[in-house]
Amino acid sequence: MSSKTAHQILDDPEFLKLVRQKNAVTVVLTIVELVLYFGFIALIAYNKPFLAERVSAGSSITIGIPIAVGVIFLSWLLTGIYVFWANNKYDAMVKSVRERMGR
């Protein structure tokens, strides 16, 4: 690709919008995942008694069990959200930019 086309695309408002949106989605989802996992680790490190509480009186299950399974499930859900967004919204934006650039 010649650098001229590259600069054309780089200044294109639609391309800039696409980059902004992609970065926003990526950053937000990454932060959510980091908070999710390191929040869990922080609970283990600093508040073991909370994780050791039982989910209800008379139950043997500790709060820590649904939380751990929840981290696994939510991590998967986050990848699902990203795929849904990227395969619908993002790919459409990419297609539009490419078509306008004649590629």
């Binding site: 995942e33 998967w76 990848t79 990203y82 795929v83």
Partner: peptide, 9 residues
């Protein structure tokens, strides 16, 4: 498991 979302994003 938690590395996978990072790989994705």
């Amino acid at each position: 498991l938690v590395g996978w979302p990072i790989v994705m994003f």
